[in-house]
Amino acid sequence: MSERRFSIWSWVWFLLGAVYFLVPLYATLRHSLRMERDVIGFKAYVRAFEDQDFWETFLLSNTLAVATIVASVILIVPTAYWIRLRLPQARRITEFITLLPFVIPAIILVFGLIRTYSVPIGIPFTAIELLQPLTTSKLGTYALITAGYMVLAMPYMYRSVDTGMRTVDIRTLTEAAQSLGAGWFTIVTQVILPNIRSALLSGALLTFAIVVGEVTLASFLGVDAFGPYLFLIGQHRAYEPAALSFVTFLLTWLAMGLIQLATGGQGQTAGAH
């Protein structure tokens, strides 16, 4: 009897949650389809996709997102791995650092970046310059904004990776690989990374979502990214922003579906040892 009551309440809460998420989404969809008076159609979508700026900013943000994910994996996986393996005492410090983006707003971060990297970087008290100002070139600015995105995504990426590593016996797997002749690079790429694949994909998805929607860093660094574009057309147009928001939702779901596809069949392997 109690099992049945539990089941009903589970459904009630589930439906309430679903309504909470689906009603705004439905409202957005409905609004995006009513660009022409008394007609339901895809005109807002057509207009949005016809805009060359949309494709350019969207492509740029996607490229920056991929760069951020790759750089984050290169930085965070070995760090989290080494902390788990050899430096557990550094865990608190690392966790504190990874939480800083929650405390320090993006506006502070971007002003810090601009102030530091808009002048040549050299050795103090000498005339030797090591690095030209990053903000004066496009490539430099992209590198700068990617680094900024890495900081913003760090809490999510680090936690995802760390949680993934908790589910596998990192130490024993490392020692087993070492005894078979593997070096550090082989261990990380062939043993550790494949076994935290689903955690890595979750972190990557969150990073992707943050980068594609980010406005502050891109606006102040003058990067024509998707976030500022969406913000701009939101101020000037009525229906296209709704259409693009809905498309962004669909893309997020698509990404989640791909993660399920990629990890679903192997879900248990991570914990098995």
């Binding site: 087993a176 005894s179 076994n195 991570a270």
Partner: peptide, 15 residues
Amino acid sequence: RNVGMIFQAYALFPN
């Protein structure tokens, strides 16, 4: 070292 090791927790690579 070319030393084979067997662990209590098997330590097979899950992937």
